[in-house]
């Protein structure tokens, strides 16, 4: 029980605090590659605290939806995080079919983010919302295919099936994990609006997807939304970490490996953002479809493993 309590606390701490440091590390990495010293990795945390203190400017066009949405986005993202396993594949809410509830809770948050963007009556924000909604239609089915394949392989309907893949499937497991990790990484880049899908640093509205949707949010609303976006990033990183890190290697080692994975992924994202430019919008769809094809390969491999060729 004590152990579980500790893991629960750890999960909550990771969910709430890791987003700032992950984003801080990404920024630090980008600064390193461009030969700058860069800001401290605590800066995103300070920024959020500053935003909480600031006043808001609200558009006269908006209705209650705009006022209400940031709270929904934050709550749903945090709640979805409670279903996600962190250390030793322990998730606070562990239930069969968790990944379906997880996706639909995130979907609810996305729904409010989209209508909040449309509520401002801005053409830019409408464009961002439209693109975000379209990418979701590619990402989600692929995510479901991957998770369903892993569940079918392990016969375990919870997120614990993630950690099971390598252990019980040998070489096939390793192949499946590599493909699943790559495709979850593409999902991470898409959902958290990173290069090459989106560029979080640009303020040229025509190139943006997620960033443009929150142009009119300010103060506490903006703080909640950026925090929620960071939490979403940590959630997806945690899924990747659980695919890679084996079970039963001791508490200390798994905590270390877990944190190392988060840092490593942040560094990879930072390096990627320094190395390549954002794709042209017409090519972004092709990039996101990479996830779907990888997901189908994962499903085929799972089928071969289970039923032979």
């Amino acid at each position: 029980m004590d152990n579980n309590l500790m893991l629960t606390l750890f999960n909550i701490l990771i969910l709430l605090l890791a987003p700032f440091f992950v984003i801080g590390i990404i920024k630090k990495t980008k600064a390193f590659w461009s030969g700058r010293k860069g800001v401290s990795i605590f800066q995103p945390l300070f920024d959020t605290i500053r935003l909480f203190k600031k006043d808001r400017t609200i558009s006269t066009t908006t209705s209650w939806v705009f006022n209400f949405a940031p709270a929904v986005v934050f709550v749903t993202t945090l709640l979805a995080g409670l279903f996600v396993p962190m250390i030793n594949c322990y998730s606070i809410i562990n239930v069969a079919g968790a990944f379906i509830i997880f996706s639909y809770i995130l979907g609810l948050g996305k729904f409010f983010a989209l209508i909040s963007a449309m509520d401002t009556g801005s053409s830019f924000e409408g464009m961002g919302a439209s693109r975000e909604a379209s990418f979701t239609t590619i990402v989600e089915p692929a995510f479901f295919i991957i998770l369903a394949s892993l569940v079918a392989l392990s016969g375990n309907y919870t997120f614990a099936s993630l950690a099971d893949v390598i252990k019980s499937n040998g070489t096939f497991g390793i192949l499946i994990v590599i493909l699943a990790v790559v495709s979850l990484f593409v999902m991470l880049l898409t959902e958290c609006s990173r290069v090459p899908v989106d560029d979080p640093t640009t303020h040229l509205e025509l190139t943006m997807i997620h960033e443009v949707m929150i142009l009119d949010n300010s103060g506490i609303d903006l703080a909640l939304i950026t925090w929620a976006n960071g939490i979403k990033m940590v959630i997806l990183m945690a899924l990747i970490a659980n695919l890679i890190i084996p079970l039963g290697i001791g508490f200390g080692l798994s905590v270390g490996l877990f944190l190392l994975t988060l840092v490593l992924l942040a560094v990879i994202i930072g390096t990627l953002e320094s190395g390549i430019a954002r794709l042209r919008m017409s090519h972004v769809f092709e990039f996101v479809f990479v996830m779907s094809s990888f997901a189908l390969v994962v499903a085929s491999l799972a089928a071969v493993k289970m039923y032979g060729i």
Binding site: F52, R56, I58, T61, G121, S122, F124
Partner: peptide, 13 residues
């Protein structure tokens, strides 16, 4: 938090 809310039109570039 009782931050002040200012009303202004949507950012329109």
């Amino acid at each position: 938090f009782k931050n002040k809310n200012e009303k202004y039109c949507t950012w329109g570039c």
